[in-house]
Design a binder for these strands. Sequence first.
DNA 1: GATTGTGCCCTTTTT
DNA 2: GGGCACAATC
Length: 792
Amino acid sequence: MVCTYHMPSVALTRVRRKALTLLPNQDFVTELLNQLNEPQRQAVTHTEGPVMIIAGAGAGKTRALTYRIAHLINKGADPFQILALTFTNKAAREMKERVMELIGHAEGRNVWMGTFHAVFAKILRIEGHHLGYPSNFTIYDTDDGKRLVKNIVNDLNLDAKTYPASFVLHRISSAKSNLFTPEDYLNNSEVRSNDQVAGKPMIGEIFKSYNARLKRADAMDFDDLLFNTNLLFRDFPEVLYKYQHKFNFILVDEYQDTNHAQYLILKKLAALHENICVVGDDAQSIYAFRGANIQNILNFKHDYPDHQLYRLEQNYRSTNVIVQASNKVIANNKDQIKKTIWTDKGEGELISLLRATSDNEEATLVVNSIFGYKMAKQLPNKHFVILYRTNAQSRTFEEALRKQNIAYRIYGGLSFYSRKEVKDILAYFRLVINHNDEEAFNRIINYPARGIGKTSIEKMIVLANDMNTSLWEIANTLGSLNSGLNRPTIARVEEFTTMIRSFAAQLATKDAYELAKHITSSVGLIKTLKEDDSPEGISRIENIEELLNAIKDFTEKEVDQDVEGIVAGPRQLNEFMSEVSLLTDADNDDPENTDYVSLMTIHAAKGLEFPYVYVVGLEENLFPSIQSLSARSDLEEERRLFYVAITRAEEKLTLSYAESRYRWGNLTMCEPSRFVEEIDPALIEKPRRAGFSSPAKSGQPHQAGNFVKLPSTPVTSPVQASPEDKLQLDNFEASDTVGLQNGMVVLHQKFGKGKVISVEGTGPNKKATVFFNGYGQKQLLLKFARLQILDE
DNA sequence: GATTGTGCCCTTTTT
DNA sequence: GGGCACAATC
């Protein structure tokens, strides 16, 4: 955990001003700088004034940042005065580790290093009272936000189909990222007419209510952390001055991904010293969908006319084949700053392209390829990563890896902290810490069941809305209100609030683990879960145990002293909770067992590198995604995403696609992605496919890159001959299985003889359900299955 | 009020 | 294929 929040009572004014004991060590500095190339060295040693570093993929961006921090401290800068902002916890942690390696643990840990959200949350816990927030405010995640929007849509008697929670929330998020208040939103005629045209005129009203409900719950969503920080610095100059003064040196990673709110905060913070160094690559901007604004790179040039620009164009990561392929791909984008990325790492292996008939076969092919390389070259699992566009694609690879007994780890997806049972327990902790947290209240008031039903809760919510107060307040004054609840129900609600209060009373006296354990056992959740002895039920209990273990680790862990003057002591539950809300699954690495194949979305892979990279699911409508095809800017973002994907590879890049894939339980036809065609064919090895053999079964995996090629399969590069290829396939289907009917006996190259159960769909989507002896029922796309009719 | 059953939407991507 | 909201039934 990088950015640790500590007790808010410890004010920043209790400064433990460190004497600058570390004298510049000339040998060390020289050695440090000798490890850099010329532009890197210039960027690192140019410490005063605004600096922008435009760095290509693999050009040593992180290295420049970490060395810069080390160099600053060596020159005598106080680590407490350095602020380094990243976009992911993982990036922040890695940077911190590298800085500590360079200059030692004692100094390195004092640098303020964390994600925008984590650092600003920390500041808001200390300063939020200026804006009317208590220091124990809750951070609502997307899930909480969606529930709240749903409730509001319901309360306003709006149609849930016209106002889907995720859509509304996205609009609200964009508005907040651009610093729109609900009032700004409602008064903006352009926005309003957009909503009007879209048939969703009430979004502004929902936004207004959403913000009011957040405030009432003493809660902020992710966007509020930025919005409110900006507000704080805008309206409270003395607070701004304090932090301007504190952060003498500001460093920002992945600057191309900053949104408008982040841009303005940075501008304000840096205004006093103007010692701001931003590092970015426009080609790797992949977060425009959540408000990132590449224009911020241009704004930087305008805001700081005397800035110095450094370009890092030498790629140290990848082979020439990979660098050339990525240059070619990104050249298709109109919007870009021209760069010439080069490497002297040597040509390297050609890019492999795997073509599979189905998503399952794609997974088998990829995993067999991994297995082959592992065996042939004796490589550890951690050299491999499988990258995909959407989280949903992980399943088939997971299964294939499990079959081959290869250790793997999935990043993202349904994260540990978003599992229902974990969220339930966390809701108890949240409510204990912040009684006004309504999402938590709603979640657990009747879970486990304590006889407080839906109608009772509805009545309380109506009361809360009428009196504009929190649910907690209503729950505590039910006896004196004309609530319409019956006496036994009121008694049960009172029992609940009394219990929560008794937990709260122990916040200060028990450490995080003791209290968490006490709450978990007192509320009877484990007991409820134990009644379910299915595998899922058992895994739920295990997850809760895992959560308690995590809290135990946290409690025992040494306090990271990155707030000045912090008093070490047993760590408490509210400290744990303030960290957990900004955590994602990727932040839970098990240090004991690190040798696994990684599976993650391309977004999650940004900033990482692996020797062997598999980019899978390269199909039109999946990658690029179907939503991106209507606007050029969206398509270009997808292309940048592809660029990010292929530039993760150090030695060997393998691309794959499937010709058919299950989506939403339906078999869909796929065409290879246009991105594959954008790579110079000379850089790609002839495509291979596994044909219809079943390699996983034999236990005899193929040698690296040596798949069975079936003579009957037309093997052509999709780059050169895909139309022709398709034509052949179409003809095949038309001539051979056009008259396929129920009850016919057919021959399949892999499954053998089978009987047709049903035929559905038309044209290229025509498919048959066939029962094969020994294989069972299969759904086959006629276009690919090449069924031979034996008998009628 | 709780439990079980049924239809409906879903899939971008993350802090 | 699966999770979740709503409906029907005890």
